[in-house]
Computed example of a mutant assay.
Amino acid sequence: MLTHVHHINLLVRDLDSAISQYGALGVTEFLRGNLQGRGVKTARFRAGETWIVLIEPTDPEGVPGQYLAKHGEGLFLLSFGVDDVTAARDIVQENGSQVLNTSPRTGLEGWQVIDLDPDAFSGADLQLTEDPERSPEER
């Protein structure tokens, strides 16, 4: 069911400052984006086949904004790539675990995302992501 680590979300207080910091790792190109529905602006880069997504909350009442206020900067969540997010959701539920959203929500680049219940995974914030840009050969 899981094909790879699709992306890792890292919360930051200042996106421009974080971009400068990650330049120390040799990262020179970032793709910027906004998810107004989630109240964030983003900058992302690839590390192999995995996206690293830097997230600056713009809405303190949104989930990322509340998480940043409670936990500070750092790891926000880990997202696993799947070929079919609704089929993967069904497998998770059939195996007795819960999801936070039964219908996929749309993330960056049209990614289809299902959030898993952290209580079912030792408190880890995990999600499943189907990437419409990923070819069947890459899956």
Results as ranks from 00 to 15, higher is better:
Asp59Tyr: 02
Glu130Tyr: 08
Leu68Lys: 02
Thr106Ala: 09
Val5Ile: 14
Glu109Asn: 14
Ala124Asn: 06
His71Cys: 10
Leu35Pro: 00
Gln93His: 09
Asp16Met: 04
Ser135Thr: 11
Asp16Ile: 07
Leu11Met: 01
Leu108Val: 08
Arg32Asn: 05
Ala124Leu: 13
Gly81Ala: 06
Tyr22Pro: 01
Val92Trp: 00
Val27Ala: 05
Ala47Arg: 12
Pro60Asp: 00
Ser97Asn: 15
His7Asn: 09
Val53Asn: 09
Gly81Cys: 05
Glu94Cys: 00
Pro57Lys: 01
Ile52Trp: 00
Glu61Asn: 07
Gly39Phe: 05
Lys70Gln: 15
Arg139Thr: 04
Gly23Arg: 08
Asp115Cys: 07
Leu128Ser: 00
Met1Gln: 01
Phe45Met: 09
Arg32Ala: 05
Val82Trp: 03
Ile52Thr: 04
Gln127Phe: 08
Ala18Asn: 07
Asn34Met: 03
Thr42Phe: 11
Arg46Pro: 11
Leu11Asp: 02
Phe30Asp: 11
Lys41Ser: 09
Leu31Asp: 15
Asn9His: 10
Arg38Tyr: 13
Phe30Asn: 06
Pro60His: 02
Gly48Met: 12
His71Lys: 10
Asn101Thr: 09
Pro132Tyr: 05
Val27Gly: 05
Arg32Gly: 01
Ser20Trp: 01
Thr106Val: 15
Glu94Ser: 05
Gln93Leu: 15
Phe80Leu: 11
Val85Asp: 00
Gly96Thr: 04
His4Ala: 15
Val63Ser: 11
Ile55Ser: 02
Ala120Val: 05
Trp111Phe: 12
Pro132Asp: 07
Arg105Glu: 12
Val82Tyr: 04
Phe121Met: 06
Ala69Gln: 10
Gly74Thr: 12
Val99Asp: 15
Met1Asp: 01
Asn95Thr: 03
Leu11Cys: 02
Glu49His: 08
Arg32Trp: 04
Trp111Lys: 12
Leu25Tyr: 13
Asp14Glu: 08
Glu29Ile: 06
Arg32Val: 02
Asp14Phe: 03
Asn9Glu: 12
Pro132Asn: 02
Ile91Leu: 01
Tyr67Trp: 13
Val53Cys: 10
Gly96Cys: 08
Gly62Asp: 06
Phe45Glu: 13
Leu35Cys: 03
Val82Ser: 02
Tyr22Lys: 05
Arg89Pro: 01
Asp125Thr: 08
